[in-house]
Design a protein around this nucleic acid. Structure first.
Length: 1134
RNA sequence: GCGCGGUUAGCUCAGUGGUAGAGCACUUCCUUGACACGGAAGGGGUCAGAGGUUCGAACCCUCUAUCGCGCACCA
């Protein structure tokens, strides 16, 4: 550092050092270096979107990680900070789609086809994928770039497949037709976490429907008990005003009403009139006296006008009596709660809204083709025109929005893959409860997030993991197309009386079933299957096999077996597993059985032997439906699958095999779950997995996990660095990512993925709004780096980001960081300008009170910063360093040291430089994790790297040891005791008071003045010179016997009295006023301390140190009072 | 409705029972040999409100108000 510019220029420094670190391999982790003395430390980066750009959130997040990583290196740990990117399914696909549309290449992704489209996404990824990585480098991130990973790397993709297959085999992944959150813009299902609730202004529409009997005839008013005592009285009068001037609606809004012709009407409130054509019932609370008499009757559905079907009026306890009119329209196809009601009451499902949010023909000619929102307005209009609309009042409700597309999601029935979360209990139990850091627990910082985590873990719902997208990990499931072709066939229902086989106990039933089979000639006979023409023989072994393997219901259906075998449909054929030489193939057939009130799906296995004979082997039954109106006399013994049939009208006796597809096709003849194709004739599931289904494996999949125990045991990276030490992320992805990683960690690695999770705040703008592109309130970090430097950005962002609080970002913080760097730079520049080589040896004999004071302050700062690190309080660490360096080192020590540096005593001067070098050397190390670039530059510039071993700071400050507080021995050696500390502090206090005099008497700061010091005890000349410098005085005369002229302004403390003689210039009145003011203040303080000490309870109960402190303060204020009184007396005396 | 967090100087926020703090902004002075991206001095706060515990409360407890967030529900 031969020629030092006045201002720090980060641009001249940052890239150079970053390249140096890279070239020297400083960021590369080596498991071989890990030992008992050199523990491993690891962090995995929360992978940013591969095509994303750096945001302020990334800056905060990655700065914290870099600080942790660099601190750990200085602590002598082997550090792995593992970087990478996420493919970000929906986000990336949406961006690429939008771009291609803008370029006019496509209107929709279907125009290109899957292969072509994916080529474009990959091209996009190649083009934009590196940007954010480069930006992280600009920020100074010390990631091990040799290990950079991407969630769609081949190895990583294998992990995802492996995990899917594994969870499927464990029975945790299943496919089913369920209500899911559907995004009509992205055209995919979403998980519950991707839905955000927003308040929406809309309308609550009240419309009336006529109550009728099952034959459609009107219900007369005398049909039920009188309305006496019914809680909400009908609203009389022309409530129709709100519905429009042309409205002829009846003059009521609530409760059942009877019109002049004796017809009865119900009024229903809804926010979604466009779904009326999908209504399949109306529901009231059975405890609602207004409506109980109508349960079992029907209403005429209002829309579509040309198809006013009759809907049953149901009683359901979940209906809120107080909401609206207490009558709910039930729309099983388009509302999650209504779907549940539909399941309870076996309601048919009518879909009127298509995947893209438009209404279909079932919605009627007036609504068909309209978008759901246009349809809402249109439906209201239709109701109004028909005179059915009672009123429409403004209404605010919560609507779920798609996180990405920002449109209301549509609850929709569709076939999706779901995951039952694994290792839930372990994952739930491992996180330390707030305030209770168990020894081996996973800790959250701040710990209150543990409560949020726990609440979510306690209420887990299955995770919808399939996405109807192209960009992502394709679901490793293969379907047998030949088998699928069979699925369009119809099934004939076979009927059977439940009581056909007598018996209560299983054993009894088994015996009876065999007897019946023998008596009726089933045993040993062959039946011709109509679907295949095969002859299928029933053997005793086959029957017994079925009884033992597949349970009670198989016994019950024996009498129907011949019919079932005749009517079953072939759905797939497969080799026997494990291979059996005498079995050529195993066929699966499906039949439909009505048993008592219920429908059962019956799945047969038929063995085809080498000799061509086909043997009935075993079967399974599952309950798939029941008749409307039945309460189900016989409870189902297998899992209900009613929803598979729910969308089919109940009146249709023939059932398509496809209706049973959902679960039947999990048979291996039809479906294989594996990474590679099973061969020709098999096609892969078109859907991809939720992005988070790959992200949740990040901590170990990035380290080369394979799932093969032998290979993983030999993987040194994995064995050394898993579990990771710290994770830094935002609380907004605690469910999306953190919780799922913990579960995956336990499930696949057998232990937690990290020890500590630090949750950053969310970065908001000055006004507290979330940063977003659309608001344009998100500054570009790269511009900030260009303008202020990376260190400034890091420091500024960090200082304003206390633990667990949201961050209101203000560019002024970065300016603060820039200013701080400049201060650091110039303080070092000052040292450099003093010349000489690095002074390594401090001679304790020559230490001044200032030296001792700053060494103590340094010691304190080291302790406080280290403590802050231990508590993950990074902004506090930064604040301590800021205070120490600026307010203590620069403001006092550097100024005071100028006395010795300008003095004639060479030894004292050299010693002062040694103290400076000592302090700066420590300071640079303390700052390095926060300000990596400037500290490296200064470390070398000041020559501190010289004479150090290369791995101890000789080559780079990165590996210089983290400072430790001074030991008791060192403190004794340097003579750092309380007396030294107190003397310097008092000196600086006296200086402040002296400077204040200058100000009080309006003496310009630049004017050279003479002060007189009347010391309370001996005051060394060198200290007087320090006083003079700090006071910017021409001279400070020491006179123990000084008799100040009347009214001479003075300041005093324990060290003595400091006078500012102003011959002939004193304004007595002003000085008296000033002193009086001060005296009042002093007396007020004195009074407070006195009162406390006077309280007898105080002296008795207070801890001794506090008592001593109060007594010291009492003495101090008493002395101060005495001095002021004397000064006032002096003023009046002459 | 349940839960979490906040309410301290004009602004943004620290402050876990013992003298109310920082940065920015503001006022005045100073371009003195590290730094004007700087220095010095200063003004500015019944710590949201009420009650309680305590010798002592910004801090602990209770209630209230208010803002924000999350979860659940909302036809």
């Amino acid at each position: 550092m031969s020629e030092i510019p006045k201002a720090y220029d980060p641009r001249a420094v940052e890239d150079r050092w970053y390249q140096f670190w890279l070239d020297a391999g400083c960021f590369t982790a080596d498991p071989a270096r890990v030992s008992a003395r050199r523990p491993a430390y690891s962090i995995v980066i929360p992978p940013p979107n591969v095509t994303g750009v750096l945001t302020m959130g990334h800056v905060l997040n990655n700065t914290l990680q870099d600080i942790l990583a660099r601190k750990a290196r200085m602590d002598g740990k082997e550090v792995l900070w593992l970087p990478g990117t996420d493919h970000a399914g929906i986000a990336t696909q949406t961006v690429v789609e939008k771009t291609l549309r803008k370029q006019g290449l496509i209107r929709h992704r279907d125009d290109l086809g899957r292969e072509k489209f994916l080529e474009h996404v990959w091209a996009w990824k190649e083009k934009h994928g590196g940007i954010i990585i480069q930006q992280l480098k600009k920020l100074g991130c010390s990631c091990d770039w040799t290990r950079e990973r991407f969630t769609m790397d081949p190895d990583y993709s294998r992990c995802v497949q492996k995990v899917f297959v594994d969870l499927y085999r464990k029975g945790l992944i299943y496919r089913g037709r369920r209500m899911v959150n559907w995004c009509p813009v992205s055209l995919t299902a979403l998980s519950d976490e991707e839905v955000i609730m927003k308040e929406q202004k809309g309308h609550l529409y009240y419309f009336r429907v006529q109550v009728v009997e099952a034959d459609g005839s009107p219900v007369k008013v005398e049909a039920g008990p009188a309305l006496a005592g019914a809680p909400p009285a009908p609203v009389p009068g022309p409530a129709a005003g709100a519905a429009g001037p042309d409205n002829a609606a009846p003059p009521f809004a609530r409760g059942p009403e009877t019109d002049a012709e004796g017809r009865t009407w119900l009024t229903i409130a809804t926010t979604r009139p466009e779904t009326i054509p999908a209504d399949t019932a109306v529901a009231v609370n059975p405890a609602d006296p207004r409506y109980t008499r109508f349960i079992g009757k029907f209403v005429k559905r209002a829309l579509p006008l040309e198809n006013q079907a009759l809907l049953p009026i149901l009683g359901d306890e979940h209906i809120d009596i107080r909401f609206g009119t207490g009558v709910l329209k039930v729309t099983p196809a388009h509302d999650a709660a209504d779907y549940e009601i539909g399941l309870r009451h076996r309601l048919p499902v009518i879909e009127v809204i298509e995947a893209n949010g438009r209404l279909n023909d079932r919605a009627g000619r007036d609504l068909a083709g309209l978008d759901r929102f246009a349809a809402r307005a249109k439906a209201a209009e239709l109701l109004r025109a028909a005179g059915a609309l009672v009123k429409a009042e403004p209404y605010v409700n919560n609507v779920g929005f798609s996180e990405r597309a920002d449109v209301p999601i549509e609850p929709r029935l569709s076939e999706q893959w779901f995951l039952k979360y694994p290792s839930v209990e372990k994952a739930r139990a491992c996180v330390a409860a707030p305030g209770d850091p168990g020894p081996d627990k996973l800790q959250f910082h701040p710990d209150r997030w543990a409560k949020v985590y726990d609440h979510w873990m306690a209420n887990l719902k299955d995770w919808c993991i399939s996405r109807q997208l192209w960009w992502g990990h394709r679901i490793p499931v293969w379907y047998n197309q030949t088998g699928r072709a069979a699925l369009n066939k119809g099934l004939t229902e076979v009927e059977l009386a439940w009581e056909a086989i007598p018996g209560a106990k299983a054993r009894e039933l088994r015996e009876n079933a065999l007897r019946v089979a023998a008596q009726t000639g089933i045993l040993g006979a062959a039946f011709t299957n109509q679907d295949t023409g095969w002859s299928i023989r029933v053997s005793k072994a086959g029957l017994v096999h079925a009884f033992t393997r597949r349970g009670l219901q198989n016994i019950k259906l024996v009498p129907a077996l011949p019919e079932l075998l005749r009517h079953a449909v072939l759905i797939g054929s497969e080799h026997h597993a494990p291979p059996a030489p005498d079995v050529r193939a195993v066929h699966t057939l499906l039949a439909l059985l009505r048993l008592g009130y219920r429908r059962y799906r019956v799945l047969f296995t038929v063995k085809e032997l080498a000799n061509g004979q086909r043997l009935y082997d075993h079967h399974a039954v599952e309950w798939v439906g029941k008749e409307n109106g039945s309460d189900g006399k016989h409870p189902p013994e297998a899992r209900p699958l009613e929803e598979t049939l729910a969308s089919r009208p109940a009146s249709d006796p023939r059932v398509k095999v496809a209706d049973l597809l959902g679960d039947v096709n999990t048979e291996p003849e039809l479906l294989r779950v594996q990474g590679e194709s099973p061969g020709p004739g098999w096609t892969q599931d078109p859907d991809v997995l939720d992005t988070w289904f790959s992200s949740w494996l990040w901590p170990f999949a990035t380290m080369g996990w394979t799932g093969d125990p032998a290979r993983d045991a030999a993987n040194r990276t994995l064995q050394t660095f898993y579990p990771t030490t710290d994770l830094v992320t935002g609380p907004d992805i605690i469910f999306f990512w953190v919780a799922r990683m913990i579960m995956a960690g336990y499930e696949f690695m057998g232990q937690m993925p990290f020890r500590h999770v630090y949750f950053t705040g969310i970065i908001r703008d000055k006004l507290g709004r979330k940063m977003s592109k659309s608001l344009g309130n998100s500054p570009d970090p790269l511009e900030l780096i260009a303008q202020y430097g990376a260190d400034a950005l890091r420091f500024g962002t960090l200082r304003s980001a206390p633990l667990g609080q949201d961050v209101l970002f203000d560019e002024q913080n970065v300016e603060l960081g820039r200013n701080f760097c400049n201060k650091l730079w110039n303080a070092c520049r000052f040292r450099q300008l003093q010349g000489g080589t690095v002074e390594a040896e401090i001679n304790p004999a020559l230490l001044t009170s200032d030296d001792r004071w700053i060494l103590l302050r340094l010691d304190q700062a080291i302790g406080e910063v280290s403590q802050a690190f231990a508590e993950y309080k990074f902004s506090e660490a930064a604040a301590v360093l800021h205070r120490f360096f600026w307010s203590e080192y620069c403001d006092w020590y550097v100024e005071a040291s100028k006395a010795a540096l300008a003095g004639a005593d060479a030894a004292r001067r050299a010693n002062t430089l040694a103290v400076m070098d000592f302090v700066l050397n420590h300071t640079l190390r303390l700052f390095h994790p926060f300000l990596p670039f400037i500290t490296e530059e200064l470390w070398h510039g000041l020559g501190y790297a010289q004479d150090l071993p290369p791995d101890q700071g000789g080559r780079t400050i990165m590996f210089a040891p983290w400072p430790k507080p001074l030991s008791a021995d060192e403190k004794a050696w340097f003579g750092l005791d309380e007396a030294a500390d107190r003397f310097a502090a008092a000196k600086y206090d006296l200086v402040s008071r002296g400077r204040n005099l200058r100000r009080e008497f309006n003496l310009p700061a630049g004017k050279k003045l003479r002060y007189v010091l009347k010391p309370a005890a001996a005051f060394p000349a060198a200290e007087v010179e320090v006083l003079r410098l700090l006071l910017n005085a021409e001279a400070v005369d020491v006179d123990p016997a000084y008799q100040p002229p009347r009214g001479t302004p003075s300041a005093a403390n324990s060290l003595g009295e400091l006078y500012l003689p102003l011959a002939g210039q004193v304004d007595f009145a002003a000085e008296r006023a000033r002193l009086t003011r001060e005296l009042e203040k002093a007396r007020a303080e004195l009074g407070r301390v006195r009162d406390k000490l006077a309280n007898p309870d105080f002296a008795r109960r207070v801890p001794p140190p506090v008592l001593a402190e109060h007594q010291r303060r009492l003495a101090e204020w008493q002395e101060r009072e005495r001095q002021l009184e004397q000064a006032l007396a002096n003023l009046s005396a002459a």
